[in-house]
Structure formats: structure tokens, C-alpha cells
Design a protein around this nucleic acid. Structure first.
Length: 555
RNA sequence: GCCCCGGUAGCUCAGUUGGACAGAGCGGCGGUUUCCUAAACCGUAGGUCACAGGUUCGAGUCCUGUCCGGGGCGCCA
């Protein structure tokens, strides 16, 4: 990656200057290079001189000159065109236009793998996201987690990790019991019984639909005497129906999991007992007030938390500890990323503490918490988070604005932002939407390539060194940023830069398209530009694919 | 009361581990089409970066406090 080469060049130049006695032998600060905002500041810039000035007891300009002159002699002139010093002490590096043009061939050669790298070195990594309780359809709040988790998985996979997407099915907790009780109440109502929806149950309409389906499929066979609780079958069938619905919801936004993990299996398979035993043996468990507690002060947690309730039922926390024991110890993932909504925020520190208590380095566990925000439709504003009777389902959104627009909008906000998703806006704007702007660039390119195919132009021999127009070089520069972006997203676990990048790439293409005609009488130039355009197509398609979006051939 | 997150253009949001004149999309205003898709392009207006201090060569970015909003706070998940 060119960025790393320039980084190495700057660091090498600092070292050379130190060897030559032009700079004192001080440690070099982090982050040697950055991307300047203004194009006339070059492709890369370094502010090291400014940051080293104090310790070196030299003026920033002196330092900059020392480093720059070393860089000029170290740099390959075919790659770096110019190294200049700019007050008050920046070093600006301009890449050679010829080198830039040649990268078009490289991109075409890499094809669909352009942007991939081996940062992860094939290490196993799991992304678990959404894992909504199987008590209702996927709602809009989950949609954000879906887009975030799936994009993260795609980015990390591109960065060289062996990625698995997992959905934890909470089929063992209190909530599914409440769900089953609600379902059974609705079911009984269909047979004329006066069975109220239980306290804290699920008042949504969909529960009545589920009950109807239950009646259609099983008749009255699930009815029990008035005073009795629901039969296990109601619980299991209900969850099964919900899960089928969830799978279909996920399909509507193009998310597919590699593994569906049953919480119940933690108990049936003995994992839960094993994890608790480990905690106990390591001295993190105590009995108090009739319950079993996780004593976490030893691993830096301030509060203690209940593992097993006084009624003998394990808490979600205990279950999650067993679950992570399974992930790290039994299944051996080197890294695990959990994506969850801000309503789980309080769960983060104690889960980290629990990992430590299990002897797992907590840095192997990343928990990404996204803020919930609101959804706006007309004048109605709905919270994205709360479990309420009335909510907007993911399906409503994907039906209205489409999977691509939904994903683009979800991914384009940082996880920390309290996003406002304006449904009407997303629909109304659809023609002027950035989503279509980006996809249109891809379709435009496809159109050009189709015409080239009809004219039977073979551009494989095109000479990319003919690409010297400023708009051509700007487009190439933008394409070369993709690998850097994948790398930084894989490190920061923040994929929201992707939509912005796709937009900039599309802008660079549209600008080129206006200024440079691809298919013209100049045959050599046409071939060169066909190469450029097909490289741009590769890059755009990759950017879209990383977001799980389609790259249409025509619009 | 304590903890987490946010407050940047009319709206929705970026701002690359402190760097050069604070950006984008949408919306507003004004233009561009005999020519590979006008779902495009060009121009223009719009800012006390919530507020007050502090740290330093330099702060939207780091620290302290205040205000406003969202979320959470030992036997829900």
C-alpha cells in the first residue's frame, strides 16, 4: 500500500537525518503521515517536524528541511514526484502522475479483490450482532445493528480475517416465557376464553396473528384446562414461527448469518456449568442474600452482579458469560465483536470483567454499542429502542425505501450518533439520494463499457500512461484510497466512512465524465480511458459490496 | 445522585489517534443538454463548532465545570 511506503519513507528519512547528525536521536512520534485536506498540499503530508521541534530544540522548518532532503534522496523518483517543505513546518509529498496512471493497470489486475489485504492474517473472528429476542419481528432499531454488524463483517473479511457472523437465539430466558404466555393467552381468546395478556406481556397485533396460525395448524390441541399454564409446545412453536419471520426480515435487507446459536444449548451441553465452575474455582463467585453473585471487584468492576437469582434461575449475565466462554475457550475465536444497542450499555464493563475473570484477555473482546435515536414519519417521532406494543418493523422500511437505501442510511452514521431516520425523506428524496448518485456512477460506467463492447473495442492493450488529465488523476487518487480505508475501518471498527467514500468516488467519476470523453476518435486515448473507467467500476462495485449494496448495470 | 453517548450550515451528518482557510449530502437561489444515461454538471448564499474556563507553537478534537437531549444504573435482556 502506497501509504505505508510513504510512511516508511518519512521514518527512514528521519533515521537517516539522525545518523547524519542533522537531528538529535529522539524517539519519533506516532502517526508520521496524514492526508492533507487541500490538494496543493500534496498526496500525503507530515507534521512530524512541528511535533518534534520542542524536544529537538530546533525550529520546525530546520527539522522539515533535514527530513525532506533525506527523503528526496531516498525516494524513488518514479513514485514520488516532489517533496516540499511548507511553513510552519509541514512536509508535503506529491506522488508522480505517471505512477498514479500506472495504478490503473494494477487495480484491473487485482479485480474484485482490490481493497483486500492480509491485515488479519487469517485469524478467526466472530461478529455477533442484533441477536434480537425471538419474541417479535425485527424492528427498525435492529436494522441499524444489522447494517453495522454486517458491514463490519464484510470489512474485516476484506482485511484478511476469517469472519463468522452469528445470531444468538435467546430461547432460554424470561422474555420468551412471557412471550409464550402472551401467545397462549391470545390463543385461548380465539376459543372464547377470557384470558388476559399477562403483565409485562406483548400487546402487539402480531401476537394475535401468531395465535391464529397456531389455531390453523394445531386446532384446539394445544388447549389445556383453564387454570393450567401454557404447554411447552406453544413456547417452541411460537419461537419457531418468529424465527422464520426474522429470517425473512433479514433476507429483505440482505443479511445472512453463518451460525444461529441457541442459548438453550449452553445449558443442555454443559457449557453453562463449566463456565460457572471456572469462575468459582478462580474465586469470583459468592453466595449472598439467597442469590449467587459475580464478585468482580478483583478485576476492576465497581459493582457486583447476580449470576443466579434466588429462585434458582440464571440471569442473562450468567448466560452471556457461558456464551463467551463458549466463543473463546470452546470454539477458539481469537477475536470476538459484539454489536448491541445502547440499552445494553451497562452490560459492557461487567462482561469485560467477566472475560478477565475467565482468564480471557479482554482486549480480544470488542463490544460496539450503537446509540438508538429516533425514527420520523410525518410528524410522528418514534424511539428506536423501547420494547413497546407499537413499533416500526424493518420490513416496513425496506419495503418503502429499499434494502440499498436502508443500508446506506444506517451505515452512514457513526455508532455514537443518535441517528434520526426520516422515512418520508428517505423516500421522497429517492431521486436525489446519495444512494442513487453512487449507483448511477456505476451504471454510467457499465453503459460505456457496453458500448465499447458493441464497437468491439479491445482495450486490454490500452496505454494508461496517456491518462494525464487532472480529472483522470483525481479519480485515480480517489480509487487508491479504498485499501487505506478498509485498513483504517478494520482497525477502528467504524465503517461509517464507507458511504462518504463511495460518494466522493462517484463524484470524482461524474466530474471525469463531464470533462473527459471516453469513446472518441482518438483510439489510443479511448482505450486508456476505458481502462480507467473499468478500474473505477471495480472500485465502486467493491465499495458498494462492502456495504452490502447492489451495483446496478443500468438505471 | 452516578455512568455511557450526543450538541458542528435551514435539515441530516462527516471531520483521519491536536495540525494548514471547518466539510458533504439534501434543501434555497442562479445557470448548463444537437455530444458515451441531466438519477449528471457548474456557480452562489449559509457557521459564536451548545456555553464558560484551562492545557500549548497550534483545540471542533484533550482537561474541568455548566446547560440541553438520548440511553443505562446488583436477582429485565
Amino acid at each position: 500500500m502506497i501509504k505505508h511506503e510513504i510512511e516508511a519513507l518519512i521514518l527512514g528519512s528521519v533515521r537517516a537525518a539522525q545518523h547524519a547528525g542533522e537531528l538529535p536521536p529522539l524517539p519519533v512520534p506516532e502517526a508520521p503521515i496524514e492526508r492533507p485536506q487541500r490538494p496543493d498540499h500534496g498526496d500525503y503530508a507530515s507534521s512530524l517536524p512541528l511535533r518534534m521541534a520542542r524536544a529537538a530544540r530546533m525550529s520546525p522548518l530546520e527539522i522539515a528541511n533535514a527530513i525532506a532532503s533525506q527523503a528526496r534522496s531516498l525516494a524513488e523518483s518514479t513514485v514520488v514526484a516532489q517533496v516540499e517543505v511548507s511553513p510552519p513546518g509541514f512536509i508535503n509529498i506529491h506522488l508522480s502522475p505517471v505512477w498514479l496512471a500506472l495504478q490503473v493497470d494494477t487495480i484491473i489486475q487485482e479485480g474484485a479483490s482490490f481493497g483486500s489485504m492480509n491485515l488479519g492474517e487469517g485469524r478467526s473472528l466472530q461478529v455477533e450482532f442484533v441477536s434480537a429476542n425471538p419474541v417479535g419481528p425485527i424492528h427498525i432499531g435492529n436494522g441499524r445493528g444489522l447494517a453495522l454488524g454486517d458491514t463490519l463483517a464484510r470489512v474485516l473479511s476484506a482485511a484478511g480475517y476469517e469472519v463468522q457472523r452469528e445470531y444468538l437465539v435467546n430461547d432460554a430466558g424470561t422474555q420468551t416465557e412471557t412471550f409464550a404466555a402472551t401467545l397462549y393467552a391470545r390463543y385461548q381468546q380465539l376459543f372464547g376464553r377470557d384470558a388476559p395478556v399477562p403483565e409485562g406481556g406483548y400487546p402487539g397485533e402480531y401476537m394475535i396473528d401468531l395465535a391464529r396460525r397456531l389455531k390453523e395448524e394445531r386446532g384446539d390441541s394445544l388447549l389445556r384446562p383453564e387454570e393450567e399454564a401454557y404447554p411447552q409446545e406453544v413456547h417452541d412453536l411460537g419461537i419457531q414461527m418468529i424465527l422464520d419471520g426474522i429470517r425473512a426480515d433479514l433476507e429483505s435487507i440482505g443479511v445472512r448469518y453463518d451460525n444461529w446459536f441457541s442459548e438453550r444449548s449452553l445449558y443442555a451441553g454443559g457449557t453453562y456449568e463449566k463456565a460457572m465452575t471456572v469462575l468459582r474455582e478462580r474465586g469470583f463467585v459468592a453466595q449472598k442474600e439467597g442469590a449467587t453473585w459475580f464478585v468482580s471487584t478483583a478485576v476492576g468492576e465497581e459493582k457486583e452482579n447476580v449470576l443466579v437469582r434466588s429462585n434458582g434461575a440464571p440471569t442473562y449475565f450468567a448466560s452471556d458469560i457461558a456464551y463467551h466462554y463458549d466463543k473463546f475457550v470452546l470454539r477458539g475465536f481469537e477475536r470476538v465483536i459484539d454489536v448491541s444497542g445502547a440499552d445494553h450499555q451497562g452490560h459492557v464493563p461487567r462482561m469485560k470483567a467477566a472475560a478477565s475473570a475467565l482468564g480471557i484477555d479482554p482486549s480480544r473482546l470488542a463490544i460496539i454499542v450503537y446509540q438508538l435515536g429516533t425514527l420520523k414519519r410525518g410528524n410522528e417521532v418514534v424511539g428506536l429502542g423501547k420494547r413497546t406494543g407499537e413499533f416500526i418493523t424493518l420490513r416496513e422500511v425496506t419495503d418503502e425505501v429499499g434494502a440499498d437505501a436502508a443500508r446506506y442510511n444506517f451505515v452512514s452514521r457513526s455508532a455514537d450518533s443518535h441517528m434520526e431516520f426520516d422515512l418520508d425523506l428517505a423516500k421522497r428524496q429517492s431521486a436525489e439520494n446519495p444512494v442513487y448518485y453512487v449507483q448511477y456512477a456505476h451504471a454510467r460506467i457499465a453503459g460505456i463499457l457496453i458500448q465499447a463492447g458493441e464497437r468491439i473495442i479491445d482495450y486490454s492493450s490500452g496505454d494508461v500512461s496517456l491518462l494525464t488529465h487532472e480529472a483522470e488523476l483525481a479519480l485515480i487518487r480517489k480509487m487508491l484510497r479504498l485499501p487505506e480505508l478498509v485498513e483504517s475501518m478494520a482497525l477502528s471498527l467504524e465503517p461509517h466512512a464507507l458511504p462518504y467514500y463511495a460518494l466522493e468516488l462517484a463524484t470524482a467519476f461524474h466530474d471525469f465524465y463531464e470533462k473527459c470523453r471516453v469513446l472518441s476518435d482518438d483510439e489510443a486515448l479511448s482505450k486508456a480511458r476505458l481502462k480507467l473507467v473499468s478500474a473505477a467500476k471495480i472500485t465502486l462495485a467493491r465499495a458498494l459490496d462492502l456495504m452490502g449494496m447492489t451495483a446496478p448495470e443500468r438505471m
